[in-house]
């Protein structure tokens, strides 16, 4: 089978997909545990909502990093 088109561009696209996909998985795994604990804490004491939310959204940064790498890969490289 002969590969058509630019192989480099394809590899960048795969890399970008992996960057977003894997970091998304990482974020999801981290938020799963934090979310469960946060809901438990809020059920006990509603005033903890703010703090729980901060902990809950902390791992989101991981997927943003993935997205930045993906964007850099696609648009800059």
């Amino acid at each position: 089978m002969v590969l058509e088109g630019d192989v480099g561009a394809g590899l960048i696209a795969i890399g970008a997909g992996l960057a977003v996909g894997l970091t998304g998985l990482g974020t999801g795994m981290a938020e799963k545990d934090i979310g469960a604990a946060a809901v438990g804490a809020i059920t006990e004491d509603l005033s903890l909502f703010g703090k729980a939310m901060i902990f809950m959204v902390l791992p989101e940064t991981i997927v943003i990093f993935g997205l930045v790498i993906a964007i850099l890969g696609i648009f800059v490289m």
Binding site: E60, T61, I64, F65, L67, V68, I71
Partner: peptide
Amino acid sequence: IGNVLSYTRLAAIGM
């Protein structure tokens, strides 16, 4: 640097 890069969500969400 992690904190600074975290602000790229401003562009990412818009995108």
